[in-house]
Design a protein around this nucleic acid. Structure first.
Length: 952
RNA sequence: GGGCUCAUAGCUCAGUUGGUUAGAGCACGCGCUUGAUAAGCGCGGGGUCGAUGGUUCAAGUCCAUCUGGGCCCA
């Protein structure tokens, strides 16, 4: 009998599975979308959009490994934006890119080659790098697709593609044309055995025993007098260094502006060192007793004092620098702008020459300035020297010169960590070599860039707003841009060298060569002679004959590559894009990186910023908000694949959406577990709705809003509000708000209230009962709203649910991602009804609270077993609302009966509970409500309402 | 060391121009249901709003300092 009755109910039915099985099922949908040409379909659908295009320009990931979870985060955010904008009606061309050139790839390939003991030409090495990069492009592409990224993979851009490389060179030509490119020296790490510049990553720090020396620099009497220093005895500033070989390149002595310096008396002479270090200097020089201090002076007072080099006839200028410390040494820092990064900066600031008297082979040059007895001595310490702890010939030579000049106050062995060449294992030297620079101020580009930053800010284009300060700081403080690298895997700088080693650079020539490279690729540069390269190119006046030229071997800084994407992709309208982009979206490290390089390139070449808005996200951290690399608990690989394999792409995407990504983004099992719960909530919500629409055809059964039941109209009002709030949040890129809003909507508005109340109607009324059809209409609308609101996040599940909703099948051609953003008809909004429901739901909470003790006491189980009496005062608006909705209250509270009683003025609303049995009622075996009496039906005795339902 | 930035329940997030006992979802605990069932419902516990000091009749909200994270520099 009971099962028989159950069969008369309209219980939910759907093929949409409760279990997501994302890991297993998602790849099928990726393949389905691919087969469908979903990206192209989406583009075609918006082709003639009145709203126009929304161009999100993709920052290219580096192609040297699996997609990291952080990269997946970035790409997913972009995908969410694109899918949202597309549903809003924008055409959203999305051309993905790959950053291919650069040291990490070259280094990895070089190491492999070295392990295999191969010797390759530059062109061969470059071919291997190309292959390496290409293999990762293929892998990353499938990994991006796996996480649901929809993109124009047919039109992807690669910075290593010949056409792209040609555009990089054309950008470079624009720099040259404007006269911004100049040649100057800059210190680099230098491997003497390989006669090559090294990158930070090619350096290994090892213990090294150096010779530390304390060197006296004479302060001429006239200078002493000028700076108010005592003149009655010879006076010296004492510096300290662990690289004696750099003394011939000394041009300055740096003091800290705020540190106090002492003029100390040694008897026959006086020295100047930081007061705090006088004791340690004296003990190093074995001076006893402690020298007396004649005078003290703060560093800033000695600026521009002109001391003398100990053995070369020239000045060594006192300059000021904040990095000077009194931790060790003398507080007076030997400064050789050609041999140190800080020295170089200080040199630039003070107009010093970037002087480097050391050649490619590590030997002192005969430049007419290096003393004859030092010329030819090498700064190299061979592996054998290192084993014997023997200083380099250059170091020994300098020590001798200093001793002869009586300038060596003291010397000592000094053990410290020192950079070594990873291949030759010998200490590197820091050495200035010729580089190409771009002047950022010569033609006022810095000011233009800053103005563009301001303009973007005025349009609220920096998101979050503090991005403006970051990029402004980077642009303001950026020195002239050093664009040359002594590398192989990059775009060659199209410069030629004459027999006299003079460099020749010309915009027209670069463009002509770029045209050739567009067809032949940059290996052309490495495979050919200058004469071949310049064949047919008209050389500018004053150039030597092509046959007398050789090709430069420097490559362009990879930031020129990436900064050129806006020109190579957007300016060319690749894949339907356009310049400037509506949005750049990258991690906040790119304010100084890609956002800046793109801005400079674009400002120099086109006079304006390449983007209208720049959105940034933070970095992934662990549960303790520490960067993951620091985390000891996270040893598992941080690849997107690993995460997807465990949770599925939709859960990972939902996690990304759930986080306020402007800040750091924590990830750990608990967080993902929570997101998994939310995912299930969304999925079950879809499933409940779908399953209760099994016999509903909107075209046939939909009820006009005006005729809908109050509860359903309330639900539509809530839905309209949800649309408005979610849309606002999406527009502000605050996806986590959408997540929270939808989460609460599903769990509270729907699950705990609306859906729970609806079950009785949907299951027990006749199929075509107006109330049931009213509710189904609402559910239909709500589903269609919710599935769209969530489609950008859980792309797979939304498409799946949509497919079941529209076709009853797992897959369909008219994907959710081809649908429009939901718009709530004006009639959905019903604030007065919402206010009334505010009252009703507050009482509902009170009812629940009152029912609970009865449940605990075992008097009843489900709320339907209860009959409720509510007592309120006639003047109470809440009570008045109850009166208006009296007939609806049992349904709303999910109880069997509600009686209203008027109580005395001033009394709070009270709720009384009795069980159905206590009320003398009988339980209907079909709908489980307690009613005064049952009536006979085809299926035995049931309540009158069920009798009617069974007849229908 | 410098620039920018973040800090509210176990987790993810709300908290309008400073104004009643700081909210939500999840998680947790205790029940109910078995007609969304590897589901659903109800009730409940839980926060000195990073710390300290200040402004104010009133501070999570304003100011200062500090602590601890993050990104970028040095």
């Amino acid at each position: 009998m009971a099962t028989d009755l159950k069969d008369t109910l309209l219980l939910p039915k759907t093929a949409f599975p409760m279990r997501a099985d994302l890991v297993k099922r998602e790849p099928g949908r990726v393949a389905h979308w691919e087969k469908l040409g979903l990206y192209e379909k989406v583009q075609a659908k918006r082709a003639g959009s009145l709203k126009g295009a929304f161009v999100l320009h993709d920052g290219p990931p580096f192609t040297n490994g699996d997609v990291h979870i952080g990269t997946a985060l970035n790409k997913t955010l972009k995908d969410i934006v694109n899918r949202y904008k597309s549903m809003r009606g924008f055409r959203t061309p999305y051309v993905p890119g790959w950053d291919c050139h650069g040291l990490p790839i070259e280094q990895k390939v070089s190491r492999e080659i070295q392990e295999q003991k191969l010797t390759l030409t530059t062109a061969e090495l470059r071919a291997k790098c190309d292959e390496f990069s290409e293999s990762w492009i293929a892998k990353q592409k499938s990994q991006f697709k796996r996480i649901g990224v929809l993109a124009d993979w047919q039109n992807e851009y690669k910075t290593k593609a010949p056409a792209f490389e040609a555009d990089i060179l054309r950008t470079f030509a624009a720099f040259v044309e404007q006269g911004l490119v100049y040649r100057s020296k800059k210190p680099v790490y230098w491997s003497i055995p390989f006669e090559t510049a090294l990158a930070e990553a090619e350096i290994e720090y090892k213990d090294h025993t150096s010779v530390a020396i304390w060197v006296k620099f004479l302060v001429p009497t006239a200078e002493a007098a000028k700076f108010g220093l005592p003149t009655d005895k010879p006076l010296f500033i004492v510096i300290w260094t662990t690289t004696p070989w750099t003394i011939p390149a000394n041009l300055a002595i740096a003091l800290h502006p705020e540190v106090e310096y002492a003029v100390a008396d040694l008897g026959a002479e006086r020295i100047i060192v930081a007061s705090a270090l006088l004791g340690s200097v004296a003990s190093a020089a074995k001076i006893e007793p402690q020298p007396s201090v004649v005078q003290t002076v703060v560093g800033s007072k000695l600026e521009k004092l002109s001391a003398r080099h100990p053995f070369i006839d020239r000045a060594s200028l006192v300059v000021l620098a904040d990095y000077v410390t009194t931790d060790s040494g003398t507080g007076a820092v030997h400064t050789a702008p050609g041999h140190g990064a800080e020295d170089y900066q200080t040199g630039l600031k003070n107009g010093l020459e970037v002087y480097c008297p050391v050649g490619d082979d590590g030997k002192y040059l005969d430049d007419g300035r290096v003393p004859a007895d030092l010329v030819g001595l090498t700064t190299l310490e061979t592996v054998e020297d290192l084993a014997a702890k023997k200083p380099s010939p250059a170091n020994l030579g300098v020590l001798k010169k200093l001793a002869e000049a009586n300038a060596l106050l003291a010397k000592a062995k000094y053990q410290h960590s020192y950079p070594h060449c990873w291949r030759s294992k010998t200490p590197i030297i820091f050495r200035a070599v010729d580089q190409w620079f771009v002047s950022l101020d010569k033609a006022g580009h810095r000011q233009i860039a800053l103005n563009e930053i301001t303009k973007i800010a005025q349009n609220q284009g920096w998101i979050p707003a503090w991005g403006e300060a970051r990029i402004r700081g980077a642009v303001e403080s950026r020195p002239d841009w050093c664009i040359s690298r002594q590398r192989s895997w990059g775009v060659p700088i199209i410069a030629f060298y004459g027999p006299d080693k003079q460099a020749y650079l010309d915009a027209g020539v670069i463009r002509a060569v770029a045209d050739k490279i567009a067809g032949k690729g940059t290996n052309f540069w490495y495979d050919s002679t200058a004469a071949q390269i310049l064949d047919g190119v008209k050389l500018p006046a004053g150039w030597p004959a092509a046959t007398d030229l050789t090709c430069g071997r420097d490559t362009l800084d990879v930031w020129i590559d990436s900064g050129s994407t806006q020109a190579a992709v957007l300016k060319r309208g690749q894949g339907g894009t356009s310049w400037p982009a509506d949005l750049y979206l990258e991690g906040s490290d790119q304010h100084r990186g890609w956002f800046q390089s793109s801005l400079w390139n674009s400002v120099i070449a086109s006079g304006a910023a390449p983007y209208k808005a720049v959105l940034t996200h933070g970095f992934i951290v662990d549960k303790n908000r520490q960067k993951i690399s620091k985390s000891s608990t996270y040893q598992k690989p941080q690849t997107a694949e690993a995460y997807i394999a465990q949770h599925g792409a939709d859960v990972i995407r939902l996690w990304i959406a759930s986080q306020d990504f402007r800040d750091d983004i924590p990830v750990d099992d608990e967080i993902l577990k929570n997101v998994g719960e939310a995912y299930r909530l969304f999925r079950n919500t879809f499933r409940f709705q779908l399953s209760n629409l099994f016999d509903f055809d909107a075209a046939q059964h939909a009820v006009p809003v005006a005729q809908m039941d109050a509860l359903d109209r309330w639900a539509l009002h809530q839905t309209a509000t949800l649309i408005a709030e979610c849309t606002k949040a999406y527009d502000a890129y605050e996806f986590h708000r959408v997540y929270q809003l939808c989460n609460q909507f599903c769990s509270v508005t729907l699950s705990a209230v609306y859906h729970d109340i609806l079950k009785d109607r949907l299951y027990t009324l006749g199929a075509a009962h107006p109330l049931r059809r009213s509710s189904q209409t609402a559910i239909h609308h709500i589903f269609n709203t919710l599935v769209r609101l969530l489609a950008p996040f859980i792309t797979f599940t939304a498409d799946e649910a949509w497919s079941y909703a529209t076709t009853g099948q797992e897959y369909c051609d008219d994907s959710i991602h081809l649908q429009d953003w939901p718009v709530a008809p004006a009639e959905w909004l019903n604030p007065s009804l919402a206010a009334e429901f505010g009252h009703l739901l507050a009482v509902r909470t009170q009812v629940n609270e009152a029912v609970e003790p009865n449940r605990a006491a075992g008097k009843l189980g489900k709320s339907l077993d209860a009959c409720i009496a509510v007592a309120g005062t006639a003047t109470d608006p809440v009570y008045q609302t109850l009166l208006r909705y009296q007939n609806f209250l049992p349904e709303l509270f999910i109880v069997s009966k509600v009686t209203l009683e008027e109580s005395a003025v001033g009394m709070p609303l009270r709720v009384g509970v009795r069980t159905g049995a206590e009320s003398g009622f009988t339980r209907c075996p079909r709908c489980w409500r307690w009613v005064p009496a049952l009536e006979p039906s085809s299926h035995g005795n049931v309540c009158p309402r069920c009798v009617a339902a069974l007849k229908s």
